[in-house]
Nucleic acid binder design. Sequence first.
DNA 1: GTATTAGTATATAAATTCTATAGAATTATA
DNA 2: TATAATTCTATAGAATTTATATACTAATAC
Lengths: 144, 144
Amino acid sequence: MLSKKCKYAIHALIYLAERYQQGPVHIQEIADRQHIPKKFLEAILLELRNAQVLHSKKGKGGGYYLYKKPEDVNLMEIIRLMDGAIAMLPCVSLNYYEPCEECKDEKTCGIRDSFVGVRDETLRILSESTLAKIVHREKILGES
Amino acid sequence: MLSKKCKYAIHALIYLAERYQQGPVHIQEIADRQHIPKKFLEAILLELRNAQVLHSKKGKGGGYYLYKKPEDVNLMEIIRLMDGAIAMLPCVSLNYYEPCEECKDEKTCGIRDSFVGVRDETLRILSESTLAKIVHREKILGES
DNA sequence: GTATTAGTATATAAATTCTATAGAATTATA
DNA sequence: TATAATTCTATAGAATTTATATACTAATAC
């Protein structure tokens, strides 16, 4: 399951994607509209800024705004930043690889293949899911 | 990521699948061979017994043994028993459904579709991965 | 220079995961 | 029937992660 942190991040980013190139948005506004504790949201947005997904502007009229294009930010990236590995086992993770303690020998491990398959399908779908597509989808669903 | 509990369960079940229909196996033996804390393993095996995956025999000469056929136990089932939902969001879980707090309206939610896709692919692969196939795969990999 | 806003550091609450302790109940067998 | 072997039960607590709150600092616009 995704952590709350990750879900908050996704919703905040969608909110900002809907306002792409319309200037900075206050943390407080995002917090209010998406029902996210403000201080928790600050930490989340900060991480996203450090990852160059967002930029921020301090002082009056300041706030956060999407730096990357909405079509260049996808769920795979967001989840990795917030929750870390997407794979179900450390030994099949591309970005957070670690050998399994329980596992004597990776080459003769009978379960690895299954989890490699799950990982690949998961990454394929999540990387195709960009903020642009999500915003577009919500617009269409909202109209019908 | 799978919990340790779940990984322990998978390895214990593989161990028992390799000894299917060869009589009860001691907890201690499984614990030693798979490097699992004995008391933790006890709790795990108990759950699997309550779920009718294993049966047990008490007293001298007792132990645990696989009750279901190895071809009828798959990773999907084991993970659900140990860790609960497999889906990444509660609102797309088949067995552990809950509405998302963050979500105002499921019908106009732009991310649901992606996670439904991930869930379906994951379940497909995991449900195809039976203990029988895993044991068979390890045998082949071990020989080559 | 004052109000507004993000940024930083730290504390703490809450929940989950993992492991350990102690002993009761059951069974085989000598 | 006594003994040893084993599962079963209950509970406690350590360790880790997740989530939230408090208080203050730094930058910016006007």
